[in-house]
């Protein structure tokens, strides 16, 4: 019996294959599809979620490793209807092109701001270098992170 806590809700996954990456448990079993599949080998960051507040690549984290810990996905980032400052900044800067990588980008950025509320460009580059944007929206991502940081609510 495997149980995981996602965005504050307990999910009983029954006798799930414990080697299943958290990514597929979230997507196929729980139906939270905001977390994306991009490479399967922790190279692109599209699958980034928080495990006890730390950004991890869910495609390479077995569901067994997430038991007993708090998982936050893109669907759980806003406070009800009130968007996280990063989400608002992403809209204000019109960051997405195809948008596929953006939930992973936002989750990486959220972990950065939780630890470093006023990051420099170098801090941002370091924290975000694990996330590929195939469309090349990096300039707007960086600008949006600065905007969210300046809003002081992140």
């Amino acid at each position: 019996m495997t149980t995981i806590s996602v965005n504050g809700t307990q999910h009983d996954l029954g006798d799930i294959d414990e080697t299943m990456p958290l990514l597929w448990a979230l997507r196929d079993r729980i139906g939270l599809v905001g977390t994306k599949f991009g490479c399967g080998i922790a190279q692109c960051g599209a699958c980034t979620v928080h495990l006890d507040g730390t950004a991890i690549r869910s495609c390479s984290t077995p569901v067994s490793a997430a038991q007993g810990r708090q998982i936050t996905t893109i669907e759980g980032l806003a406070d009800g209807e009130r968007l996280h400052p990063l989400q608002q900044a992403w809209i204000d800067h019109d960051v997405p092109q195809c948008g596929y990588c953006q939930s992973g980008q936002i989750m990486s950025a959220a972990a950065l701001l939780a630890e470093t509320p006023n990051p420099t460009d170098a801090d941002i580059d370091r924290a975000m270098s694990g996330n590929i944007c195939r469309c090349g929206t990096y300039l707007r991502i960086r600008a949006a992170i600065h905007t969210a940081a300046k809003s002081g609510k992140a």
Binding site: L32, V33, G34, T35, K36, F37, T73, I74, E75, L77, A78, L83, L86, Q87, W90, I91, D92, D94, V95, P96, G99, Y100, Q102, S103, I106
Partner: peptide
């Protein structure tokens, strides 16, 4: 300058893509 019509859905992780 107009922000994308799907941006709210994208940044909140709503189902939009084929996958």
């Amino acid at each position: 300058r107009i922000t994308g019509v799907d941006n709210h859905a994208l940044v909140t992780g709503q189902p939009l893509f084929g996958i």
